[in-house]
């Protein structure tokens, strides 16, 4: 139960951050990406401020043996780059640049502008559901244990 409360609070904080930073607004995202046009560099400040705060959390975690609600911190994949990672990032970047939505802002914007956002969100969920079906055909040599571990953590 307490795990769910921590999860809920994390989701609320994340959502507040998306709204205050304007990351939730696709016009803001597209103007951030439009270096040659109406460039608005604001969203660079989201990463610039978010990374040191999150890094503080990972630094604190190194001096602790376990998170509050578990027996140990999980071991995250630290391996080499592979084709799945890079091809996935290329496809994601193309979609992000096309409409100005990445997963977090799209979900947070859904209740605010349902009609505008719902085609994107449904297509996104279908795209996610296709990966376990298509990926073994495209990348037959990929280690299934690593995939399983990544699915647990991300």
């Amino acid at each position: 139960m307490i795990r769910n409360v921590f999860g809920l609070l994390a989701g609320c904080l994340f959502s507040i951050g998306l709204m205050i930073s304007h990351m939730i607004d696709p016009a803001k995202v597209l103007n951030f990406l439009d270096v040659a046009g109406r460039w608005d560099p604001s969203l660079a400040f989201v990463m610039a401020a978010g990374i040191p705060v999150a890094a503080t959390g990972y630094a604190i975690a190194k001096r602790r043996s376990a998170p509050l609600c578990d027996t140990a911190f999980p071991v995250l994949p630290r391996g080499d780059l592979d084709r799945k990672l890079i091809i996935g990032a290329v496809l994601f970047g193309a979609g992000w640049g096309l409409a100005g939505f990445c997963p977090g802002p799209a979900l947070a914007a859904l209740p605010l502008a349902f009609g505008h956002v719902v085609p994107f969100v449904i297509a996104m969920i279908i795209g996610m559901a296709l990966v376990p079906l298509v990926s073994p055909l495209l990348f037959p040599k990929h280690d299934p244990a690593l995939v399983k571990r990544q699915e647990l953590l991300r």
Binding site: K84, I87, G88, A89, V90, L91, F92, G93, A94, G95, W96, L98, A99, F101, C102, P103, A106, P119, F120, V121, I122, A123, M124, I125, I126, G127, M128, A129, L130, V131, V134, S135
Partner: peptide, 11 residues
């Protein structure tokens, strides 16, 4: 865009 974002982020 949704299909690319969903498929790409999971892959």
């Amino acid at each position: 865009a949704g299909l690319l974002v969903g498929f790409g982020t999971r892959l």
